[in-house]
Design a protein around this nucleic acid. Structure first.
Lengths: 234, 234
DNA sequence: CGCATAGTTGAATTCCCTCAACTTGAGTGG
DNA sequence: CCACTCAAGTTGAGGGAATTCAACTATGCG
């Protein structure tokens, strides 16, 4: 069942021993799943490959990405613990999925999930909800790409990461490198570096090493990220 | 029922007379709907407003858009005949929706649609499929925004419009103005105009008036749009 | 400790935006 | 039907934000 998944990459399938504990994390305990541990830069599935499995991240981080002919790369999104991957594909994956660092995932059979969704309205609603959230995230990103400057993109990214992985005191460790952030934001690694330096100079953030970030001035950062047009307030 | 929808804009609600014919166009004949005719620039719903209705375009065109504080505008997508609008919102609309020109729509109650989706697996699957297609479109756009040049964006846009509204001989009439295209592609109206002129000079397209376009060299156009990395070919 | 990779900083370039002038075209009323 | 008007579109010149290219500095791993 996992042959197609493991072939061509270095994914290691854990046995069902370490399965029970992790299993509680998913709201779909009815159908079979495997826990998967994959190393940094391992490809979960290729761009354009048929969609046989769906994953939920338990630990680590995954990037979805797409390449243009000349090597330009775009990262679709970063999946962090709790996030789903591969649910968007109807039959084939538009983007590839790769582990940003050592990552643990739950792997579901797409066919079983579809069957469950047909039989169980609750499961169908879960799928619908995940899709809707993905669409909302994509739409926010479209605004960001179309109309935001490099600094505004950086601020939006940091605000997002702060919301998704901060410890409560505004501290978090980025799982991904500068180049990944650049390809996610539609910038270059140099520009990302410049923006981070600029933010540090203005005391909006503090950097410890290259991956650890502390948000010092969240209000200013969110102001920078541009969002603010509640024409509707009912 | 339609009070909340018509208040604050100039939408005119047609009576149920012209309803039967249009009704056949939707795959959801089980639940109540109204046919709506709205004038150019009419707002269907505002950015951030609660999501009470869902629409399907029968004729005309709708743009979804979002404004930043300083007036920068981003268009999310253009809904053409057959397309759904407002299904992406969980509770509130992220983007506003406005008619690009005189437009006829089918209007469904969100509550009824949700109820139907809960009761009828077929309806749930339709919703899921619309969401998935929307997500796929958004992901293509993310790639476009992140990594494509002005000319590549223009070529992608023309290829998309060609696929969605051409008459078979590569002729179609754009429903939207240059400024709308610009805000859709994350460019300025001037740049859109320059790219179109450039494409005409290179004999890739022919312009008749400002809205009518004929694709002359589809292959070259699609090459320009950048997509071409089938790493996977099974 | 030394090497390789990742990150930072600077200088020059490029692509697109801004601003401005001009042209086209659609709609209106004489 | 034509002239008028105003919005929309086109084209050019100049400027700015982000990229590219290159050098240098950290960082982490054997």
């Amino acid at each position: 069942m996992l042959a197609s998944l493991t072939s061509g990459n270095h994914a290691a399938v854990l046995d069902r021993a370490g399965f029970a504990a992790a299993h509680d994390a998913t709201p779909l305990p009815q159908i079979a799943s495997h826990v998967l541990r994959v190393a940094r830069d391992t490809e979960l599935y290729a761009e354009g490959s048929p969609s046989h499995h769906v994953y939920q991240v338990l630990a680590g981080a995954v990037r979805t990405c797409k390449l243009l002919g000349d090597g330009r790369r775009q990262i679709g999104f970063f999946a962090l613990p709790g996030d789903w991957i591969g649910l968007d594909a109807a039959t084939r994956h538009l983007y590839a999925a790769e582990a940003v660092k050592t990552t643990v995932l739950l792997c579901f059979s797409r066919r079983e999930l579809d069957a469950l969704a047909r039989a169980e309205p609750t499961a169908a609603q879960l799928v619908q909800s995940v899709l809707r959230q993905g669409l909302a995230a994509a739409e926010r990103r479209i605004l960001m790409f179309g109309r935001k400057t490099a600094m505004e993109r950086m601020a939006s990214f940091l605000a997002d990461m702060d919301a998704r992985l901060a410890d409560g005191r505004g501290c978090f460790t980025l799982p991904m490198a500068r180049g990944d952030i650049a390809d996610y934001l539609g910038l270059t690694a140099e520009t990302v570096s410049r923006m981070l330096s600029e933010l540090r100079r203005r005391r909006a953030i503090a950097l410890e090493g290259t991956q650890s970030i502390r948000i010092l001035d969240r209000a200013w950062l969110e102001g920078l990220s541009g969002e603010e047009t509640p024409r509707y307030s009912a």
